[in-house]
């Protein structure tokens, strides 16, 4: 499992508005890559380009190529649903399906690929919930609504839902921004564990978090509002936070900008 992602000259549009331009980036397998940068610089846009979720927005369009283990996911004859199964996503706001139980939420993706046998689903659900560090908390109420969990638990439920289909890559867009410090720590620990099996890309506004969880950090920025966001610097997290190569990166992480 876990795959290497290569973004080559990625430019993304909302209608005629160019949100990011010319992003080149190689994301190593079984690593955590943090995307940081000021609001509106296109972190989410880039993240959503990686699993082709950008194009579900009306008039959303991506140019350039993104390859996963050498295969361009934007090839004409690639099945989008297969791409999204391979590259799971966790959103900023926990979004469990409101009408489904905890169990049904976790196995929703499996049911989509046609797994029907109860036993198989149960095994997979337990594995995913354990993987998301949620099993102990919910094992006695799997049939209760997923929306009845706390925010932090809901977010871990969404992580469980994402990893239940055994993707190669997990994308997370500010997964902790709606959570308290304890839940945030729980999810950061979880990211550390998931790294052993998955390639993880995480967007965060929290510099400490980026420094804590990621191996490599990408700093995005934009010249002024209306301009497209660009990748300014991409390097080992260690290096970005101690000795950045670009003045703008340094200004941003020391809080002098953005």
């Amino acid at each position: 499992m876990a795959k290497r992602i290569e973004a080559d000259n990625v430019t993304a549009y909302y209608g005629s508005f160019k949100a990011i331009e010319g992003v080149n980036m190689v994301i190593e397998r079984k690593s955590v890559t943090a995307l940081i940068g000021p609001s509106g610089c296109g972190k989410s846009t880039f993240l959503r380009s990686i699993n082709r979720m950008h194009e579900v927005i009306p008039n959303g369009r991506v140019e350039g190529t993104i390859s996963v283990d050498g295969q361009n996911i934007y090839d004409k004859d690639v099945d989008v649903t297969a791409v999204r199964r391979m590259i799971g996503m966790v959103f900023q706001r926990p979004n469990p399906f409101p009408t489904m139980s905890i169990f049904d939420n976790v196995v929703a993706g499996l049911k989509l690929v046609g797994v029907r046998r109860k036993g198989e689903l149960q095994v997979a659900a337990e594995k995913a919930l354990r993987g998301a560090n949620l099993w102990e908390e919910v094992k006695d109420r799997l049939d209760k609504p997923g929306a009845g969990l706390s925010g932090g638990q809901q977010q871990r439920l969404c992580i469980a839902r994402a990893i239940a289909v055994e993707p190669q890559v997990v994308l997370m867009d500010e997964p902790c921004s709606a959570l308290d410090p304890i839940s945030t720590l729980a999810i950061e620990d979880l990211i550390g564990e998931l790294k052993d099996s998955y390639t993880i890309v995480i967007v965060t506004h929290n510099m400490q978090q980026a420094a804590r969880v990621s191996d490599r950090t990408a700093f995005f920025s934009l010249e002024k509002t209306g301009d497209p966001g660009r990748l300014v610097e991409y390097d080992e997290t260690q290096k970005i936070f101690t000795n950045p190569g670009e003045k703008r990166t340094e200004d941003y992480i020391t809080g002098r900008f953005g």
Binding site: M53, V56, T81, R84, F91, N95, F97, A108, L112, C158
Partner: peptide
């Protein structure tokens, strides 16, 4: 967000309707 949750799991349009739109 519910529709996107389904899409991100690899749901086709009809599956999005079945998992997110109709139950809601």
């Amino acid at each position: 967000e519910h529709e996107e949750a389904a899409m991100a799991l690899g749901a086709t349009k009809w599956e999005v309707i079945r998992t997110a739109v109709l139950p809601y």
